[in-house]
Nucleic acid binder design. Structure first.
Lengths: 414, 414
DNA sequence: CAGTGTTTTTTCGAGGCTCGAAAAAATAGA
DNA sequence: TCTATTTTTTCGAGCCTCGAAAAAACACTG
């Protein structure tokens, strides 16, 4: 079962910890790192000397941000941007976007492309992905050998091993092992992540104050997705990517969901469901394939205008989300929530019914104290999360000698 | 945030690992331990020599279970029963039970007592607990100083720190810091656990094959409780003890629950709910305070006899449990389930509707493959779980020098 | 402008821990 | 009794972290 700690694991872990501290903090000094990690000054000094020697860390200018303190000035440590690079591939409905990010987290190359994901063949989909990655790798400004990892993100269900997409609403094709395919093609370790999980990762980096140990990111888009961080760790299911919050049952036997079942939260709160209710089409009406963001904004405007079916549609969405969150909070206790996606811009229309519903549930005991935040644009968040995910992998695995990355050639920079 | 690994942590962790391997396996030899922990023979040899010297481990008889192999026979290592002892206190409806367990896991002293928990004052409840613990500690056969930890279990909600009962159905009193009270009284570290979590812990020790990394224990009793193990660890909420599965919402605005809200799973599947439906009393009828096990058995017998309101009551219970599990499985993926408690004996009446309901949910995609096990008697399970919990604490903390137990006098045996 | 105080960083020896290899121990079979 | 085999212990080597002391790098002072 659990494995003992070997002697060389020690250095490896502490190295990773130093790298982690540098990535988090803004140019921390050796003394600060010693304080946060609890290790001794001598150890930090030794490790950072090694890391600087290996070209992973760099010493900042000593006079940076005029130190007005008495003694020897602290010298900040930073990540060497050239130590490595990672690539992010975000595949969403009708849209493919790729970016190359240096080790310090700056975008150095990117490309975006419109596709018709809903109708493309399996081969075409895979082909587009490998082609766009290849084009970025062939960028003359880029040192190919420095790309140490690729992280893909997709809406839908991925396996826990982060190797394959199992199912996605953006394509009728299923079970595509994107990670394995890209690894085989380019010899670079790759992982296949769920988009909402990456949103959660990004939120944690953006605002570690608010999104710390326990929080929830909910994507309000065509479907409803969720990324969950519990006790400081991304929560994933036992077999698949993460919580299918959108498919918790709100009303047994209720409205028809895109997944073919009935009464899911999504069947009340997804864009297609809001549209269906706004048009008073009846709960059995087949969900439409896509609703444009503009259309949703029109809907929200109409709902704000007058108390008609549009407003009622948002109310129903709020109710479904509220009861769903209530059931979720019965399991994990309440936590801060970030609402992301088009409909997050209409959260003012959703919130009253949501809070009312949540107050009816066990998890909503102190429903007033549950805080919501909104972020209408999910794409940048997903990309950021992917980048941080990939970089963290690099931090942990590639630069911790002795343990190579899961697969592929663990390129080491020395 | 995360803390570095110090040099002395190494030995401490590896010691705990060796102890853990001995507790799990049946008299493992040093070679076997080396294999399972991945540490070298020399390390295991050194650590086990220490532990034997400290009186924590003992060497078994070499000729035990006639070794018919060629070379030097393996000598099995076992736990020294006298190394320490723990006490378990299980507080359930109208019943208090205490046991003292030696370091090897054998019960050496116990006592049980009927109480009227529903009407007792706060002071009386605390008084009964401290009194029964004191009596056991005064047992002349027992070396008081060897009792290294007390684990309490109670039905209801406890805090994540395992210090206090926050709310329990067995008493109207709330927020009793049992762990702190016992620690202050006896100077022995104590924790306050949730009963269903302890059931899960016990199941894992009883049948590690089946209940390994991911599984669910559901208590079908007056209320509905849940213990959840995910990725090999007990899952607890962010603030409180664990999943309030019974209070996930099954039907918004539905049947009246004991908790005062409406539509909870428990309001359909708890004993009082089954009784209420069997008597066709209407969903708004106030839940009764207690239903005897005999009464539930009569109900189940009647349901098996003919297709009357009793059978319909169990069907509704199954439906609620099925949709609840379906929503849960949407979040965590399906896992084996153990049904525990009186109504688990009536699982034949519950299962058909449960499976039908679960098949309607996202989590029930392969509903046929989800396996259920039943165990009608929860008390022994809770007690066992408590004992193992306490012993594991002792293993991890007390015998890992340098880190004392959370509170109280971390008694060390040398 | 040299001296002093202060804070950060490095250096160095001590003490631990794990590991691999070799030796010792304990048995079954020849 | 000897030999082969397997388990366990012993021993030196190689790392790693730590504490204390030294060195470095500045601000302030007179």
């Amino acid at each position: 079962m659990s494995v003992g700690i070997r002697h060389d694991d020690l250095r490896r872990r502490n190295r990773a910890m130093v790298i982690g501290a540098v990535r988090r903090g803004g140019q921390p000094s050796r003394t600060e790192i010693a304080a946060t990690t609890g290790l001794s000054h001598s150890t930090i000094s030794a490790i950072s000397a090694d890391l600087i020697g290996e070209g992973i860390l760099t010493e900042g200018k000593p006079n940076e941000a005029g130190s007005l303190k008495r003694g020897r000035p602290q010298v900040g440590l930073g990540l060497n941007p050239e130590a490595a690079a990672v690539m992010t591939v975000v595949l969403s409905l009708n849209f493919l976007s790729v970016a190359v990010i240096d080790y310090a987290g700056q975008v150095i190359s990117e490309e975006q492309r419109r596709l018709d994901t809903l109708t493309m063949s399996r081969e075409a989909l895979i082909g587009e992905c490998t082609a766009i990655v290849r084009r970025r790798l062939e960028d003359p400004d880029l040192d190919v050998s420095s790309v140490a990892r690729i992280a893909l993100a997709i809406q839908g269900i991925t396996d826990t091993e982060a190797r394959a997409m199992l199912w996605s609403p953006i394509t009728p094709r299923t079970d595509i092992a994107f990670a394995d395919i890209l690894e085989a093609e380019f010899g670079i370790p790759a992982t296949m992540e769920n988009d909402c999980n990456m949103m959660a990762v990004a939120l944690r980096w953006r605002d570690p104050q608010r999104y710390r140990d326990d929080f929830i990111a909910i994507l309000l888009s065509h479907g409803i997705g969720m990324g969950l961080v519990l006790k400081g760790e991304l929560f994933t299911g036992t077999h698949s990517s993460g919580g299918e919050f959108g498919h918790m049952i709100h009303r047994p036997g209720g409205a028809l969901c895109r997944c073919g079942r009935r009464g899911c939260v999504e069947a009340y709160a997804g864009n297609y469901a809001i549209l269906r209710n706004a048009r008073q089409l009846g709960e059995d009406t087949e969900p439409v394939a896509d609703v444009s963001d503009a259309q949703m904004r029109t809907l929200a405007a109409a709902a704000r205008e007058s108390d008609g079916p549009e407003r009622e549609a948002y109310r129903k969405a709020g109710e479904a989300l509220g009861y769903g969150l209530g059931s979720l909070f019965a399991l994990i206790d309440p936590a801060p929530v970030a609402m992301v996606g088009v409909s997050a811009a209409a959260f003012d229309l959703i919130e009253p019914a949501l809070r009312e519903a949540i107050a009816q549930t066990a998890g909503g005991q102190h429903s007033g104290s549950i805080s919501f935040d909104t972020e209408p644009n999910e794409l940048p968040l997903i990309r950021e999360g992917c980048a941080m995910r990939a970089l963290t992998f690099v931090d942990q695995e590639i630069f911790a000698p002795g343990v190579q990355a899961k697969t592929g050639s663990g390129k080491n920079v020395a």
